[in-house]
């Protein structure tokens, strides 16, 4: 699901086919430079509603998806704690 969205955003920005965007694709392979990465993160923040930190360690699409999933989980836990209180 998230992979489809990322593929759509990358395809829109770079002109590569959405099929070329896989979990193990590196941003370098996809010709995503540092400014494209920031654009992508801002779009994904709007889409997912979670704030994503920019890190050089995020090298592949899979890395990015893992980070977003973890953030979503953390955000969910925060809400649960708030509700319990």
């Amino acid at each position: 699901m998230l992979l489809d969205k990322i593929a759509e955003l990358i395809s829109e920005r770079t002109g590569c086919g959405a099929g070329a965007v896989r979990m193990d694709s590196t941003f370098k392979d996809l010709n995503i430079d540092s400014l494209d990465r920031v654009d992508l993160l801002m779009d994904l923040e709007d889409y997912t509603g979670v704030q994503i930190e920019l890190s050089e360690k995020v090298e592949t699409v899979g890395d990015l998806i893992r980070i977003i999933e973890e953030k979503k989980k953390d955000a969910g836990k925060g809400e649960e704690t708030e509700n319990a209180n």
Partner: peptide, 9 residues
């Protein structure tokens, strides 16, 4: 900054 997204960030 060299892009709008970076400025927003």
């Amino acid at each position: 900054v060299a892009s709008v997204a970076m400025a927003k960030l």
